[in-house]
């Protein structure tokens, strides 16, 4: 497998690591949510790449094409996107309430407040 044929998977790994790094290294809660989003997006790309069949077309039944890409991963990812959006929405809602309760969304300050 050459680099180009597995290009998607390299993109997945790089995106995943970027997202993961943001979650771990950033002190701003809002940016942590962005990190989680990038992290999840990389997984979506992974699923979609898996569904691709070389030379396959869109999975619509007709007489000309006989080779189709698998539509199932795409459908799964629609569900996963919905889950991702709910997580983001809930995370943002909690951040708003953290901000009104503590007056900050900085992780280090919040850790001190917790004691």
């Amino acid at each position: 497998m050459s680099f180009l044929s597995s290009f998607n998977y390299w993109a997945v790994i790089i995106l995943m690591m970027i997202g993961f790094y943001i979650i771990i290294a950033n002190n701003n809660l809002l940016k942590k949510i962005i990190g989680i989003n990038i992290f999840q997006t990389s997984i979506f790309i992974m699923f979609i790449s898996m569904g691709k069949v070389v030379d396959g077309t869109a999975p619509i039944l007709n007489e000309i094409n006989t080779l189709y890409s698998s539509p199932l991963p795409h459908v799964l990812i629609l569900t996963a996107i919905v889950v991702g959006i709910s997580t983001t929405a809930l995370g943002l809602a909690i951040i708003i309430r953290i901000h009104s309760a503590f007056g900050t969304i900085d992780d280090d300050v919040l850790k001190k407040e917790m004691e």
Partner: peptide
Amino acid sequence: KRSLYSAFKYLIFGTIGASFILISVG
């Protein structure tokens, strides 16, 4: 009010955990 920060922390951990499970299923 500390429950908010605990919930957020759980959200970050939990989402990473669930995403890992999703990768495994994929």
